[in-house]
Design a protein around this nucleic acid. Sequence first.
DNA 1: GTCTATAAATCGATAGAC
DNA 2: GTCTATCGATTTATAGAC
Lengths: 204, 204
Amino acid sequence: MSPRVEEQNQHIRDKRKQQLLAAGAKVFGERGYAGTKISDIVGEAKLSHGLIYHYFSSKEDIFIELAKTAFMTSYEAIQQAVQSSGSPFERLQAMTEGIFATPRESGHFFLIALQTNTSKTVPEEALAISKEYSGKTFDLLQELFQEGQELGEFVREDPMGQALMYTSLLNGVVFTRLTYPSLEGFPQIAQILRMFTDSGFRKE
Amino acid sequence: MSPRVEEQNQHIRDKRKQQLLAAGAKVFGERGYAGTKISDIVGEAKLSHGLIYHYFSSKEDIFIELAKTAFMTSYEAIQQAVQSSGSPFERLQAMTEGIFATPRESGHFFLIALQTNTSKTVPEEALAISKEYSGKTFDLLQELFQEGQELGEFVREDPMGQALMYTSLLNGVVFTRLTYPSLEGFPQIAQILRMFTDSGFRKE
DNA sequence: GTCTATAAATCGATAGAC
DNA sequence: GTCTATCGATTTATAGAC
């Protein structure tokens, strides 16, 4: 084989793998790990039944790769926001706005993350990845709230409690938006931030 | 048969049905609808495989009955809190405290409700029940926030937006508590209420 | 690289004995 | 009322042709 052909084959393989991952994200998100059949994924990707096993070793394998993407991108988005410039309040505001500006398709990854944390049918490795990144995420957020309290921008209370409440709120709002996709003007970012700002120092 | 025997049989039937429903709530909550096998339910209930079909017509039937319980009890708890005495703020506070004082086992019903709204594998009838009760729940909450705004206890903003944010927060916090069962002192009710109270009128 | 056919295991539901 | 045995359909994963 000439290098030219080899290169084309590699391109096809990458494309097929992406096709299957995109289809998997959608179907796993909508139907859950146990509720998703291989035929659902290849049907969504418009590929034949057997072909999926040329790109992934098993159904578990696909889910784990998708879970990895879900938790890594979520963590990196928060990391970037927390470590950017601006005051703690400004960074929290920008991060929150950024999260709710993400495209619709990311909802599938949110549901995959949700299932990983709530369903015992999901591959063990996916849960391990979740735990790894959620610990790191809480560390980042706790630091942000701690700093904001010292600057007087946030209410003085347990920073970990604030970090837990912030992620809880995020999860809840994303879930509500998934349940009612036609909702407009929700959420109001100012309403979310009000939870953490002291009345005396409240921003407009 | 004497009435005495008939009465005993009825008692056994009620007991078995409750046994199966309790087992179903646990495994459906933990494994999801598609991920739950009949053998999981009867195994948890410590009954034989075939017996479950003497009490329920199908796997769907059991899930629908559990979903009905989940949405009805949630709605009734909110209804009772909203329609009780006290100012809107006091009722919101009491309701929030009550929700997080519920026993651990109710977590399974929360997960069943969650799956009903996010998984396309769940019986259609369960989703219909969810929609019916969520509409009625939002009406109650919207009324409470509206009233609270008129009395100056809550921030003036779209009452439906407040109702959506409140239920989102509730869902998110319950989810966080399920993910980290060892968490203590979370959530702080005051922190939640701060989202809706105006700084000038804020309670202690 | 892609497809169809099939193997092997599993699951929901029923039948029939006790 | 309860249990075991079994049918029928479905599913993951593999084999082999093109």
